[in-house]
């Protein structure tokens, strides 16, 4: 589904991704861990098409298609979704209106008509219940004044609405209380199928107890320095990253 080959990306002349290789197949869950500033969010952002970063080398293939030259919105239409580490506040646009616009733009791109209003309402109701989101919340301006946890839950609500093929969750667990974490993880699990994939960026083993990864990767200095199964996450929890930083890369 997603194939990243020797990806190098830089911003303002500074190379941040220094050769990332990653393959994600349908139905898989991959966890990406790594120290602060190692390039996790950059990788997520680049996959989603953020033009702040310049790709200097390498390719990203999604379902066999090279994503170079594909705009962020087209990537979204193809089924890529990024849950932001820091969701942006958009005053003046309510969550509901934002979602309606997003869904109808995706439909338009696929040559479909707008979703009928009643169907839209039903969908919103269903997904907000899944994530235990208060209806009043949906009429508020997008992310404006939302608490850290509310923003994260709202990201997953958007994911649930858009039903992407590949979701990248960038530290969605940070800032969530224990109950919220369970609700969000449960939401993600409900949306999982053999046809879609999830990339979880996290610092904590805890999330991986709820959403079990097939693979765990460690990023350091802009490249994946170790990959393994879920046991690797436990090992990291115990030992930290230092032993990996020192270990020569094969």
């Amino acid at each position: 589904m997603l194939k990243i080959k020797d990806l190098h990306a830089s911003v303002e002349g500074k190379e941040i991704l220094t050769g990332v290789n990653l393959e994600v197949k349908p139905g898989e869950v991959h966890a990406i861990m790594g120290p602060n500033g190692s390039g996790k969010s950059t990788l997520a952002s680049v996959i989603a098409g953020n033009e702040d970063f310049e790709i200097t080398k390498g390719t990203i293939l999604f379902e066999g298609e090279d994503l170079d030259e594909v705009s962020p919105e087209e990537r979204a239409h193809k089924g890529i979704f990024l849950s932001f580490q820091y969701p942006v506040e958009i005053p003046g646009v309510s969550v509901t209106n934002f979602m309606k616009t997003a869904i109808n733009e995706s439909r338009k791109a696929r040559g479909q008509e707008d979703m009928p209003a009643n169907q839209m309402l039903k969908l919103i109701r269903e997904k907000s219940e899944l994530l235990d989101i208060d209806r009043k919340f949906l009429s508020r301006s997008l992310n404006e004044g939302f608490s850290g946890g509310e923003k994260k839950r709202n990201e997953i609500f958007q994911m649930a609405m858009l039903e992407p093929k590949m979701a990248i969750l960038d530290e969605t667990d940070s800032g969530l209380d224990i109950d919220a974490l369970r609700i969000v993880a449960n939401g993600v699990n409900k949306l999982k199928s053999k046809d879609n994939a999830v990339i979880l960026i996290t610092h904590y083993q805890r999330l991986l107890e709820y959403i079990i990864p097939d693979f765990v990767h460690v990023i350091h200095d802009g490249k994946i320095v170790k990959s393994g199964t879920k046991e690797l996450a436990l090992e990291l929890e115990e030992k930290g990253y230092d032993w990996l930083k020192k270990e020569p890369v094969a």
Binding site: E51, R75, H77, L82, F84, V88, G92, F98, A109, Q158
Partner: peptide, 28 residues
């Protein structure tokens, strides 16, 4: 541009995203 990328990443094309952001800007 951060807001722009956020909207685009949800499938809203740049032109419509500009409109939505400007709409929000003028709205209050």
């Amino acid at each position: 541009e951060d807001a722009m990328f956020y909207l685009q990443s949800r499938g809203i094309p740049r032109k419509e995203a500009t409109g939505l952001l400007m709409y929000a800007f003028a709205n209050n």
